[in-house]
Design a protein around this nucleic acid. Structure first.
Lengths: 328, 328
DNA sequence: ACGCATCATGTAACCGGTTACATTAACCAC
DNA sequence: GTGGTTAATGTAACCGGTTACATGATGCGT
């Protein structure tokens, strides 16, 4: 990039570096004559200010660090797109760092951000609060996404699983379904836990029978779960899987077993992956881009006025499609 | 982040800043005793080096700037994933900047990178070489992706659209299709232009009828295009969309209109997004992640030995699936 | 004991910006 | 003309690291 420095510009314009700096930053107290000389010199030399040096002396970088785990497919691009939307609107750059491996790598990633960014957005589903606390000194502006949050009061944004789940259960109940099955995600996963828990609560509220079987978010596990249920002779008229993948697996097994969907059994999932639309699967749409955008907005808010502790919930939205449209 | 500076560490460890710096950077000439004192002080203070200051004095940031246009769906996440793969392997960070709007915004985006990154990867399908040249002083390490390249010899990586398109047309012709429709991408987009151009050429070579209709890379535009075509009563036996998104949109409309795929109409796309495999869509596989990774490798190579001018083509690969498998 | 090489350490300049403060010039009122 | 005010400009310190060079201590050969 243009290697000219502000001192080169000053020399060529026959003024001091202070005047150049003032002229470039549009300060008031600069004469027209000086302003013009500086502008000429800048053009002649192709001068572009050195952002690194600038941020060192200003203690401000106009960049936001984003630390994400390995994310699959849509999720990554959508969340970054949302952040970028807000960032480019407000003139910030995004400094990206995926952390694949384990804890040390995460700490390294976070440390590498020091002195480069004004704030951080961190999504670290496999780090505990305590571990995060070590790597993130108190006082540094951070917004957490979907981290296991234990009351510590750091600003955070969470997906509101309960809202999504209860919308599905309410919908199924309204369609006359009375014996619901939930295929849960893997035991260690926070979202999976919250969804299963909310499912039980919602069923109780609507006075419908409920049962929870285990899955692990893969399509196969959804198939296997329903397979087992069918051969055990258990009766049910709706299946709600903790994600779309498992719902699709369930769908295939149900149809193979001669069940009509939605007439005999309604099916619903969670996430609204592109395939869900194609297949006509009722699901819960998570607006991932909006989540990312909101996280950045929140962080910028903190940078501006320092305020805003506590968690914020991001509500997903019920999308009713063919697999649940008919009443029983 | 830890606000302690290297001088704080030096004071607490009772040594000079130079010794601290040497100890932290693992230089040889530091006594064990000093090394230990520094390590203690660093731990006590929670010191993390200020990367901005470091890169200012080293004239090296360990960051790579990535400037991308608005990209749709998978493409963005895949290309960034590929770059990230290489970046985290080699200890680089990615500084991301999407440029949506017009030229000035692009120039601003590029200038914002000055003094923050060691090199740039730029994908600017809507900027001419000349425009780019102004914003990118010669001598700064850059790798261009899919830019309108006019012989200027900057290192670049291009997707070989012609190879992919001609493979599809040849395949469709071999399957007995004779009236092909191409749904093109947005007018300003280089890939879209190249694909449409190659389509016309390939059709002529294989002696089949061809028609090009306009789309904009979104699924909806694919649906709309075929919708319009069907209601105009035009006849065709194969649809080749400039990307998979539009092909999927077309697929839905065709089926909704009672056409059998592939018996009545064959369908093909471009990109091979994950959904394409699930749906059985014939397409051209672009290993996008590999493209991104390759771009970064190339850039790192340039940083290391300065060499490597010229363009490099990245050939995509035909993937035949159910939507085109049956001969007419 | 001396001279000399070797090694650890410290001092201060530098990277490229910003800005507090000092300086100078210009203008006005008296 | 003098003193005081205001506006434009310049000087130099500072942000937080790195590193060339100077300094001081230690060990060795003779």
């Amino acid at each position: 990039m243009g290697e000219a420095t502000i001192r080169d510009v000053a020399r060529r314009a026959q003024v001091s570096v202070a005047s150049v700096s003032r002229a470039l930053n549009g300060l008031e107290n600069v004469s027209e004559r000086t302003r013009a000389k500086v502008a000429d010199a800048v053009r002649d030399l192709g001068y572009v200010p050195h952002a690194g040096a600038r941020s060192l002396s200003l203690a401000r970088s106009n960049a936001i660090g984003v630390v994400l785990p390995d994310l699959y497919g849509e999720f990554f691009s959508e969340i970054v797109r949302g952040m970028d939307r807000e960032a480019s609107r407000t003139g910030y750059l995004l400094l990206l760092s995926n952390m694949h491996g384990r804890k040390e790598q995460a700490v390294t990633a976070l440390h590498a951000m020091r002195g480069r960014v004004d704030g951080l957005i961190v999504m670290a589903p496999h780090l505990s609060e305590a571990e995060l606390g070590q790597a993130l000194p108190a006082g540094f502006p951070v917004v957490l996404i979907n981290t296991r949050s234990e009351e510590n009061g750091r600003p955070a944004i969470h997906l509101d699983n309960a809202v999504g789940v209860s919308a599905v259960v309410e919908h199924l109940a309204a369609m006359g379904r009375t014996r619901l099955v939930h295929i849960a995600g893997p035991a260690g996963n926070l979202d999976a836990q919250e969804r299963a828990e909310a499912f039980r609560r919602s069923c109780a509220e609507h006075g419908v029978d409920c049962e929870v079987v285990q899955g692990d978010f893969t399509e196969e596990s959804g198939s296997a779960a329903i397979d087992a249920l069918l051969s055990s002779g258990r009766d049910f008229d709706a299946v709600f899987a903790a994600n779309d993948n498992m719902a699709l697996g369930a769908l295939q097994v149900l149809r193979a077993a001669g069940k009509r969907v939605p007439e005999d059994v309604a099916v619903a999932g969670f996430d609204d992956i592109p395939l869900a639309k194609l297949v006509g699967l009722t699901t819960v749409r998570v607006n991932i881009a909006e989540l990312g955008q909101r996280a950045l907005e929140r962080l910028l808010g903190i940078l501006a006025d320092g305020g805003g502790e506590g968690e914020e919930m991001h509500a997903p939205e019920l999308v009713v499609r063919a697999t649940s449209e008919a009443a029983r």
